[in-house]
Design a protein around this nucleic acid. Sequence first.
DNA 1: TAACCATTTGGCTATATTGCCAAATATGCA
DNA 2: TGCATATTTGGCAATATAGCCAAATGGTTA
Lengths: 106, 106
Amino acid sequence: MNEKQKALYEARAKIIKAMAHPTRLFIVDAVSKKSQCVAELTEQIGADMSTVSKHLTILKNVGIIEDEKRGSHIYYKLKTPCVMSFFGCVESVLKSTAVQQLKLVK
Amino acid sequence: MNEKQKALYEARAKIIKAMAHPTRLFIVDAVSKKSQCVAELTEQIGADMSTVSKHLTILKNVGIIEDEKRGSHIYYKLKTPCVMSFFGCVESVLKSTAVQQLKLVK
DNA sequence: TAACCATTTGGCTATATTGCCAAATATGCA
DNA sequence: TGCATATTTGGCAATATAGCCAAATGGTTA
């Protein structure tokens, strides 16, 4: 792997890493349904608002979500909808391992 | 988020987390093209073989790749091909942010 | 301008991840 | 059996991540 390739894989990994957290996955899922602000998301997640805010920043920095200021509120929404396809694949990975674990039990 | 939901998001995140590393992304890419063993991958990656082996274990444990023993070699191959769709989406996220950064420069 | 609401930032601690080296394990062959 | 090859495991140090609290910022309204 040369330097250029390495940099490319790092850039890709950074984006996937932004999705690689339960709270951030929830956020992506939630804002894909409707634009929401930190306070709303915080209520659903049940963590400190500052924590949720930091997760939002991470997702925003890589370009997965974007913010829109409306008055004193900041609404977050999905910027790159293709990330939703991750969910389907992840589900099939989960299912495939579940099937295999079932076989082991039998 | 109730406990069950939380557990589901954690399970999903674990799978995505397995992809969230430059070396592991490279491995997924590489073994999607052809089955390979640690030594081969190590050569391309340029890290310690034990490091590469650990990355393989992480990917295997979540069910993204699987191993196949042939004689004294262990070949790794892609188990859940849908993860390849991540690349396309990641590329479009990269492109979309690149375009935006260009606009800022102008 | 002051009090207020929404949100982010700084700072700190706890925990998790990564990568190397050295040692262990497993397999094949002389 | 014993040595060579292929790969994994243990252990440790360095770095990164996550979460909370407290404080700061920024816009809104009285």
